[in-house]
């Protein structure tokens, strides 16, 4: 009985994870190494990868800053009132519950070209939807809870004693944050950042809706994979997909490694 379970577990693992990865690798190299290189060095592929990279950088930075601030205010912000904080706390999780496509749709409805806000921004030459800012906002929407949820438990665990001690020793807010709070939460921020990078690299639904998937303009790596599959260009899709998967796997390995290192210290 026990053996059966072990076999079954390995089987599920193989069917679910290993087989698709192997198949994807195989299709990426269906036309050999040169086919793979060609697939990822097409102009639209390079542009899509660049867009993905830019979105990832912007989203990770913004999510870092606002995620830390949101977590700080939700945990420490006594001036907000208990009830308001608990409402805000549940709203933070909204992107987990809402499909990314709906998230994207909400942004289109709010600042799309047909709306008052959207046309106002378009009037001053700042397009949001079907342009880079919209893609960043959409990805930010999807990844926002990741950072907050990594930092909040750490902040709750360390309590505010050390921060108060810092205040009685003469340090104001920024110094206290830099010297006392940051060293305690930096690993939480690092994990949050890793998750944010992985998630925003793979984000599809929300970005598809707000970007319009315009080749060489707003197409990202994932939406390019989608389009390649639609066009029966399986080998090219496999190439890009492999690149994304390899990067994500590398990121996860890095996270594991830092976790181990942290335990050593």
């Amino acid at each position: 009985m026990k053996k059966l379970w072990i076999v079954l577990t390995y089987l599920v693992f193989a069917v679910l994870l290993v087989a698709p990865l192997a198949k994807m690798t195989q299709s990426a190299f269906a036309n050999g190494w040169s086919g793979f290189v060609e697939a990822i060095s097409r102009p639209e592929a390079l542009h899509a990868l660049m867009m993905t990279g830019l979105v990832v950088v912007c989203v990770t930075l913004l999510n870092g800053i606002f995620g830390i601030m949101t977590a700080l205010y939700l945990v420490r912000g006594k001036w907000l009132g208990r009830r308001l904080r608990s409402v805000m706390n549940s709203i933070v999780d909204l992107p987990y519950a809402v499909s990314p496509v709906i998230g994207g749709l909400m942004i289109v409805l709010l600042v799309g070209p047909d709306t008052a806000l959207g046309s106002f921004f378009a009037g001053i030459g700042f397009n949001i939807v079907y342009a880079f800012p919209g893609m960043v906002i959409a990805t930010l929407f999807v990844t926002f809870p990741l950072m907050v949820r990594e930092i909040m438990p750490v902040l709750e665990e360390i309590g505010d004693d050390q921060e108060q001690a810092s205040a009685t020793l003469g340090a104001y807010g920024w110094t206290t944050f830099r010297r006392v709070t940051w060293p305690s939460i930096r690993w939480g921020v690092a994990y949050g950042a890793v998750l944010t990078i992985a998630r925003s690299m793979g984000e599809f639904g929300a970005v598809l809706v707000v970007s319009g998937n315009i080749i060489n303009r707003t197409q990202t790596a994932t939406t390019l994979v989608y389009q390649d599959v639609e066009n029966f260009n399986i080998a090219a899709a496999g190439g890009i997909a492999l690149l994304l998967a390899a990067f994500s796997a590398g990121l996860l390995l890095l996270m594991e490694w830092t976790k181990k290192r942290r335990e050593v210290h």
Binding site: Q162, T168, S184
Partner: peptide
């Protein structure tokens, strides 16, 4: 607190870990 010229010893010490 920063400007009161006080020293405070917390119950659980609150040392910077």
């Amino acid at each position: 607190p920063q400007e009161r010229g006080i020293g405070f010893v917390f119950q659980n010490y609150a040392l910077f870990k």
